[in-house]
């Protein structure tokens, strides 16, 4: 955002240094691109080997009529027919709408809570070590276990959730939270936020660590209050980190699968697009249509990523200007 807030990237300083060392620098430049590719090579090789094949295969399958229980069909090439089918398929459209609703709700709550938790973790106070460890606990429990645990918690007979609310006087009798559409949505959101807000907190915390203490000190001396300091120093400094964290959370939330599959199995209008894609692939053995849905997830998420990328601008890569 505002480069002026970051004296470290002061262009004049850079130019001064660069001017002095120009000769030496030039010899480095010639090798720079080569070195860059060399340094990226291990990552690229591993991504090419493991990730590219599954993706290309899915694209390819999505262009075929391929229902494994019908090998007699010969799996013909049918172009974009599977994609056209998505838009005529009410279940697919509903699942996309649900997934968007789920993604927006959870990611914004996670941002809010994660940011608050990061600010706490960043503070120096007694017992901070324990608090930091405690906040990360939800993230540390395997999803398959925690989803089961939460299903237990929402149980209408012996669930902790009912017990706590009942004792607090919020409800006057135990409720079957997962039996209604609103209840299921709420339960899923709570569980997902509980589980992944720590992740957000940890990343934002890392961003906060990049903010130099002296910036706050000088701002304090200048008489800036807490709000002002947050708005003019903290926010601009962690903005990129927050956006990257949001981006990855969005990608994950949009592909939500385990949580829903354990807690509701897609009942009560909680079928996410990943669940629907999974059903078509693995349950109906419709590899063509299932792959098309997987590719659709890919495309939607790609568009979301492009939007994030736009917001990030050139900040991530073009330090050189």
């Amino acid at each position: 955002m505002s480069d002026s807030a970051n004296p470290l990237s002061d262009i004049k300083l850079k130019e001064a240094i660069m001017g002095k060392k120009m000769k030496k620098h030039n010899s480095m430049i010639s090798t720079e691109a080569r070195d860059a590719w060399l340094m990226m090579a291990p990552a690229l090789i591993i991504l090419l080997i493991v990730a590219v094949y599954p993706i290309i295969r899915s694209f390819w399958l999505s262009l075929h009529e391929m229902i494994l229980t019908d090998p007699g069909s010969g799996y013909p090439f049918i172009g974009l027919k599977n994609y056209i089918k998505i838009f005529q398929d009410r279940k697919a459209v509903n699942s996309i709408i649900f997934t968007l609703k789920f993604t927006i709700t959870t990611v914004s709550l996670e941002l809010l809570i994660g940011f608050a938790a990061a600010l706490i973790m960043n503070k120096a106070f007694r017992g901070k070590g324990l608090v930091r460890a405690a906040i990360l606990i939800p993230w540390a429990i395997p999803t398959t276990v925690s989803a089961l645990m939460w299903k237990f918690i929402y149980n209408d007979q012996y669930g902790l959730f009912n017990d706590v609310l009942y004792r607090l006087g919020v409800i006057d009798s135990y409720k079957a939270w997962l039996s209604t559409s609103d209840g299921s949505f709420m339960a899923l959101v709570i569980t997902d936020v509980w589980k992944t807000a720590p992740y957000m907190a940890l990343l934002i915390l890392a961003g906060l660590q990049m903010v130099s203490e002296s910036l706050y000190e000088s701002a304090k001396i200048d008489g800036a209050g807490v709000v002002k300091r947050f708005y003019y120093i903290t926010l601009p400094m962690v903005k990129n980190t927050v956006i990257v964290a949001l981006l990855f959370r969005t990608l994950d939330a949009f592909r939500v699968f385990d949580l829903i599959s354990v807690m509701t199995g897609g009942a009560n209008k909680t079928e996410s697009i990943a669940i629907y894609s999974y059903k078509n692939l693995m349950k109906f053995l419709d590899f063509g249509y299932g792959s098309a849905l997987a590719v659709l997830i890919f495309i939607v998420v790609f568009i979301i990523s492009l939007i994030y990328m736009k917001v990030l601008g050139d900040k991530l890569t073009d330090m050189e200007g």
Binding site: N155, D156, Q157, Y174, K175, A176, L178, S179, T264, A267
Partner: peptide
């Protein structure tokens, strides 16, 4: 009328 409220879960 007869089953626990959560029977559909």
């Amino acid at each position: 009328k007869y089953a626990p409220e959560g029977v559909t879960t």
